[in-house]
Design a protein around this nucleic acid. Structure first.
Lengths: 161, 161
DNA sequence: CCCATATGTATAACATGTGAATCAATGGTG
DNA sequence: CACCATTGATTCACATGTTATACATATGGG
């Protein structure tokens, strides 16, 4: 609408920065995380550690590393390190599966559960404030769009089918 | 649709993962970047290095580090390291401002400009494919929503004004 | 039972994210 | 001019992202 793309003398024809999807997603995410980070940091948590604790909280029983990776959207190397830290902090158990000994089973310790109980309410409250600022229905609609974008871009083949 | 949020026996009342805004933004961004990374990597570029090159390309003249940081949305420490790399690759100039000697002025070398010229077309083409998959108007609308989200969350004060 | 292969995690190596500290240069102010 | 708070950039320290590789255990033929 308002972007009239000046003729850019002598430079390749590149779309303006802030109008590019990756940058827009990055900026939106950063604007969001800025609200959560101080609260999490106050409890000695990073965003990623919190994701792991949440995944284990919402699970019925123990999860293996692969399941947690999938649910937290963390790559295996990052997750491996984070689990070492969380175990060091006494927040998670990390025991080998007795059936398939390649698997490591993960669950919260009592301390882990207590921490989640302390952190969760304020975390939800922050989310509520965000919802309030942007509008609840708009947020739902945005989430739906994001999911559809993700689905639309899921299979990479670029048209060669 | 199919997720009916079970009553979560005995666990804190936490919104399901994939319904949280930070995760949704993260997943959408990753789904997007998956399309660009192979192309950039084929030219020895990371996403962040490419952002710096683009910023310098679209500028009228030299930029100082602060300006590039703002436009690329990179934090100063990351940018500092990336500039060292880009200078090492002979893609950017990095000279002290003669007027205010705290400032470092950045500009593309001829090699840098040539590289941008080689990379840009395919990059635009990928963006075009993404636009095609998701729909151009929908993408515009999504970008507008993301920007408004960013604006809505810009000032952190939680309502205490 | 032995092997080749597949699978689940973990490590290595390098680049970036993030917050804090450092350091040089600048611009008032007395 | 000397002082000092401010600013621009870098560096430090630690956590994570990203890709490639290693390692152990499983699994399915011969």
């Amino acid at each position: 609408m308002t972007d009239i793309a000046p003729p850019l003398i002598g430079s390749p024809n590149l779309r303006p920065f802030t109008h590019s999807l990756p940058m827009a997603l990055l900026r939106a995410r950063e604007a969001t995380m800025r609200w959560f980070r101080p609260h999490l940091a106050a409890h000695g948590l990073t965003e990623q550690r919190w994701r792991v604790l949440r995944a284990l909280t919402s699970a019925d029983g123990p999860l293996d590393v692969g399941q947690v990776a999938e649910r937290t959207f963390l790559l295996a190397p990052s997750l491996s390190r984070i689990l070492t830290d969380l175990k060091g902090l006494g927040l998670v158990h990390r025991v080998a599966d007795t059936v398939d000994r390649r698997r490591t089973l993960l669950s919260l310790t009592d301390d882990g559960r207590r921490l989640v109980t302390r952190v969760a309410p304020e975390s939800e409250s922050i989310y509520g404030r965000i919802e309030e600022r942007f509008g609840a229905e708009r947020l739902d609609s945005l989430l739906a769009d994001l999911r559809e974008l993700e689905d639309a871009l899921a299979e990479i083949d670029g048209g060669g089918r």
